[in-house]
Design a protein around this nucleic acid. Structure first.
Length: 111
DNA sequence: CTAGTGACTGTTT
DNA sequence: AAAACAGCCACTA
């Protein structure tokens, strides 16, 4: 891998700013990275992360408050869930998180 | 160069 | 509440 694209670095930097025990959405990371409206690109960048990365990618979930990797609960999906719970973030059986309680910097869009 | 794809999102069925 | 649509843009073939 080595995309050599500066966008990835900005995305990773934004993800590292998420405090422990908090979560945020792909759209919010995109905005913090100067890539407003390009949530898809954030997901693409995270999928390219190496295995031993220090980037807290597990704190990034979708705008519906659910884990995007939840399906089949295997591999990364299970890892994300375990890491979140270890930080004190409660994850629903359906892979849902209460953004109203654990969300980080999600205002500034409503009204 | 074109075409297909995706760890997304908001709106409309 | 769940599914379908369309918009968005970088990456790969």
């Amino acid at each position: 891998m080595s995309p050599a694209s500066g966008s990835y670095e900005r995305i990773y930097a934004a993800v590292r700013r998420i405090p422990r025990g908090k979560v945020t959405t792909y759209g919010a990371i995109a905005r913090l990275s100067g890539l407003d409206g390009q949530a898809r690109l954030v997901g693409y960048a995270l999928s390219a992360l190496p295995a031993g990365t220090t980037v807290p990618w597990h704190r990034v979930i979708n705008a519906q408050g659910k884990l995007s990797l939840d399906r089949s609960a295997s591999g990364a999906g299970l890892t994300q869930r375990i890491r979140l719970e270890r930080e004190g973030v409660r994850v629903d059986a359906a892979g849902r998180v209460l953004l109203a309680r654990y969300g980080w910097r999600l205002r500034a869009k409503i009204i």
